[in-house]
Design a protein around this nucleic acid. Sequence first.
DNA 1: CAATAGATCATCT
DNA 2: GATGATCTATTGC
Length: 205
Amino acid sequence: MSWPDPISIETVLERSFVLPAPFYERAPEVVARGLLGKIVVHGRTAGRIVEAEAYLGVQDRAAHASRGITNRTRVLFGPPAHAYVYLIYGMYECLNFVAEPEGQAGCILIRALEPMCGLETMRKRRPAARKPEHLCSGPGKLTLAMGITRALNGAPLTRGELTVREMGGEGKFEIAVSPRINVTECADWPLRFFVAGNAFVSKRQ
DNA sequence: CAATAGATCATCT
DNA sequence: GATGATCTATTGC
């Protein structure tokens, strides 16, 4: 039993373009919505974003940025279109994209991907996954499957080994909204966005 | 199916 | 020294 790629990495690279930096230079909730359907590429693995959460600046007590600038949160206050990767619960890494103009904090947590390329590589990295739907259906899962680590903290998303792309021919899809998962502060803010009905999101909808 | 315990550590108080 | 933007295995229905 093998899990074939729905599309080859070569085709993805040919038919897509890298999202330009100004795309990220907006409010996190706007960027989060816009990121749904876009493609994260790292090496020969790629996945379509189907779930993302917005984290705002100082006014959002659930956001790391609410504590101000520290060693960890420095990149959150830096220029947009860069990766913010941190360790959570001592075991897993979470991938975020920095939003807002430089000097202003805000980011988007990528919570789930629909795997497109490198499924077999992902499966080797995540033996516990029994179906493709389990490969990237959570923030800790997708970083493992894609091979993304803190070494990429602060890396640009517009060039280099980690990029985010848009591919034409994307059909329309419905966007659903809910409160963010596992946050205790600002727990009722509707800042989680996902593709309605998609089987690859992290929790039941 | 749902609920829960345990693993494990950088970060900030 | 307490606390997580989590995942998995296990238990119990």
